[in-house]
Design a binder for these strands. Structure first.
Length: 527
RNA sequence: GUCCCGGUAGCUCAGCAGGAUAGAGCAUCGGAUUCCUAAUCCGAAGGUCGGAGGUUCGAAUCCUCUCCGGGACACCA
């Protein structure tokens, strides 16, 4: 809708224009401050320019009003124009969002280590990634979701060791836990499970730790996948770090050809400083074992070989120092590192009561995503994370999350949606029945509400391009509020404008429904 | 020390490719229901936009400095 309005204005004025939403609705649907920027070159006061421009634009039939005010030009869209959009929305709810994207995107997210269940911090990245996927897909992008499994390094061995020790301990043996072991309860569960499925003979001596590690890792992945499914998150592909190392000789040759590597202190270093990293990084240790970075280099080589137009990685903010070296590696490999975009998901601080507590996966002192889902439901969980920008710290109180009352915006939005459905039910009608109703002589509030309901596509577009799903949650909250107010002030059933208002409401409901769907949240038809 | 994120109402946060009187939710206080769900709505109160300079017609928004909070600075993944 915005693009349409913009093109009409630009065509008429013959110049590029910034179109914005006025801060206050009373100014109109859209506004442009273009007169300010023209003031200098024309050496005339903005309000005079605005006045002249208005005269040029008034004849456009998509506008009901074009008014100059203090240099701004304010536009009010015509009822016919809005109505035509409402009709289109109701005719084809599935295609509200028109495709604008033509890129192929590889979206990598979650990628949590398979050494423990997902905690609330992982959940944030998971939910953000999934929402991006849903929005991008609706906008016509071809997006693949990928999970990178860190199944190679020492942490997997430590998982095996932890299972072994937990088993020994529960058998009554005295054990000493080395630094860095996993001590969460799930380790004891795994040990018990291992005894049953693999046999107690795996707990005699440490020779079976590797076996336990392999087994435990697979178990954890199964659990992680199940947890994600419960929140409605799926992947198109999983890439195992371990499987990548076959390619290391080849990737290493590529790097060597480009003089990306050098040897020092009997280690192999990546010359990442050439592309802006603070220091060069070790990729192969003294004993010949590649570092984690080597794995990531191969992974990104393999990613870029698959020729996507863009790569989006969602990482925890603690990885931000890692960006420079990975981008450097990509450059060395001969690819364009600007195609790689990193979305950082900042830490989540949880409060319980008023006590802050830190999460640590390794210590086993953390909140499980699955527990939170069980308490507040996936929809509330998703909304919580999506309603804040990903790159800022998020703080919330677990106690608040447990409450299922009006303070939960998901309920508020759903309630608006449900009200529309209950109204249609009462009228014995369906959305399809009001498509052809013509909207005429509606009051200003109705037209404004309709306008708001039609904004979804441009909100989603901006949310996706800026990677800020919170624009959609904010929009839905505002739309719901506007609807509730209107609902309170206007009686629908039995009124002269019953059919018109029903069409308006249906459009609002479709917008809410679609908006929630893009966030992975189910719109309720009944509370 | 270097880098990243943040500092806006009592709390949690929007707004920041400069633009109209700085917004929302929660919490607080006061009101609204013979009528489509009051799980709602209306109203009140609440602000030196961390601080100081600068840029200009105009700064919460851009630049510099500075203070405060969180995080990252592995041959761990």
């Amino acid at each position: 809708m915005k693009n349409r309005v913009l093109s009409v204005i630009e065509k008429r004025l013959g110049k590029k224009v910034v179109l914005e939403k006025p801060k206050d609705k009373k100014f109109g649907h859209y506004a442009t401050p273009v007169a300010f920027s023209m003031a200098k070159e024309l050496r005339k006061p903005p309000f005079e320019i605005a006045k002249e421009l208005c005269e040029k634009l008034k004849s456009e039939e998509i506008f009901a009003e074009v008014e100059p005010l203090k240099g701004y030009i304010n536009f009010r869209l015509s009822e016919d124009f809005l109505d035509s959009y409402a009709t289109a929305v109701l005719k084809n709810p599935e295609r509200i969002i028109s495709p604008i994207g033509n890129e192929k995107i590889l979206l990598e997210f979650v990628s949590a280590n398979p050494t423990g269940p997902l905690h609330i911090g992982h959940a944030r990245g998971a939910v953000i990634g999934d929402a991006l996927y849903r929005m991008g897909k609706a906008l016509g992008y071809e997006i693949k979701r990928e999970y990178y499994i860190n199944d190679h390094g020492s942490q997997v061995y430590k998982l095996g060791l932890s299972i072994y020790l937990a088993g020994r301990e529960s058998m009554g043996h005295e054990v000493t836990w080395p630094e860095g072991c996993y001590r969460g309860e799930y380790v004891y569960d795994l040990a018990r499970d291992a005894m049953e499925t693999l046999g107690r003979d795996h707990f005699v001596d440490e020779s079976s730790v590797s076996r336990l590690a392999e087994w435990g890792k697979d178990r954890m992945m199964e659990l992680i996948v199940r947890d994600l499914e419960k929140v409605g998150i799926y992947f198109d592909s999983f890439v195992s770090e371990k499987s990548l190392y076959d390619m290391w000789p080849k990737v290493r040759t590529v790097l060597e050809e480009r003089e990306a590597l050098y040897e020092k202190d009997s280690k192999i270093w990546l010359r990442s400083t050439r592309f802006g990293d603070e220091k060069d990084r070790v990729v192969v240790r003294e004993d010949g074992r590649p570092t984690y970075l080597a794995g990531d280099i191969i992974y990104h080589y393999q990613k870029f070989k698959r020729s996507f137009d863009r790569y989006i990685n969602i990482w925890g903010a603690d990885h931000h120092g890692y960006i420079a070296r990975v981008k450097a590696a990509i450059e060395f490999l001969g690819f364009d590192s600007s195609k790689l975009e990193i979305v950082l998901a900042q830490m989540v601080s949880l409060l319980k009561g008023s006590e802050p507590f830190k999460m640590s996966k390794r210590a086993g002192n953390y909140i499980l995503m699955s527990d939170v889902v069980e308490e507040i439901g996936k929809d509330a969980l998703r909304f919580m994370f999506l309603s804040k920008k990903s790159d800022t710290h998020l703080e919330f109180d677990v106690e608040t999350l447990k409450q299922q009352d009006a303070s939960n915006p998901v309920y508020y939005i759903n309630y608006a949606h449900a009200r529309v459905y209950s109204l249609f039910e009462k009228a014995g009608a369906e959305f399809g029945d009001v498509i052809e109703v013509e909207l005429k002589n509606m009051n200003e509030e109705a037209k404004d509400l309709l306008f708001s309901a039609l904004l979804l596509p441009e909100v989603v577009e901006e949310a996706f391009l800026k990677r800020e799903a919170n624009r959609v949650t904010d929009y839905l909250k505002a739309l719901a509020a506007q609807f509730h107010r209107f609902y309170n002030e206007n009686r629908v059933l039995g009124s002269q404008k019953e059919r018109e208002l029903m069409k308006l409401f249906a459009t609002v409901a479709v917008s809410i429904n679609k908006g929630l769907e893009l966030l992975g949240i189910e719109a309720k038809k009944r509370m």
